[in-house]
Amino acid sequence: MHRNPELDWFKSSYSNGGGETCVEVANTPGTIHVRDSKNTEGPRLAFAPAAWAGFVRTQRG
């Protein structure tokens, strides 16, 4: 699996800081990348910006 070393990963401001249940996100012009903060070399998800925005909107409840 190709890893992009140029990605600038960040955690949500809602993160508890302990890294227990956090995801990290990295933005590129056409893709939102998501990974588990506890397994940074593990599987990653990639979303189109509109799909990510839709997902985030449903989580704000």
Rank of each mutant, 00 (worst) to 15 (best):
K11Y: 00
N27P: 02
H2G: 01
F47S: 07
G61L: 12
W52M: 08
S15Y: 08
I32S: 03
H33V: 09
N16H: 12
A51Y: 03
A48K: 05
S13Y: 06
N16E: 03
Q59K: 09
R57E: 10
Q59L: 15
A50W: 00
T58L: 11
H33D: 03
F55I: 12
L45S: 12
P5T: 12
G19I: 14
V23M: 05
S15E: 01
N27K: 11
A53L: 08
A26P: 13
T21S: 07
C22W: 04
P29D: 11
G42Q: 07
G17S: 04
L45M: 13
V34Y: 12
R35N: 08
N39H: 15
A26L: 12
V23T: 04
N16C: 03
N4G: 07
I32D: 02
P29T: 10
N4K: 09
G17R: 05
T58C: 04
S37V: 15
W52L: 05
I32H: 01
T28D: 01
P49S: 03
P43H: 04
W9N: 06
T28P: 02
N39W: 02
E24L: 14
G30L: 05
D36C: 08
H33N: 14
S15T: 06
T40P: 14
F55P: 02
G18T: 14
G19N: 13
D8M: 09
G19D: 05
H2I: 10
W52T: 08
K11W: 00
E24Y: 13
G54W: 02
M1P: 14
K11L: 06
E6L: 14
W9K: 07
S12N: 00
G17E: 06
P43D: 04
Q59E: 01
P43S: 08
A53Y: 00
P5S: 09
S13P: 11
E41M: 12
R44D: 05
T31H: 13
F47Q: 02
W52R: 03
R57M: 06
Q59W: 04
A53V: 06
V56E: 00
F47A: 01
R35F: 14
F10L: 06
L45E: 11
G17C: 11
K38Q: 14
P49Q: 01
R60T: 15
G42V: 13
N27M: 12
L7Y: 09
G18R: 04
N27L: 15
E24M: 12
S12D: 01
E6P: 00
R44G: 14
A48P: 15
V34Q: 09
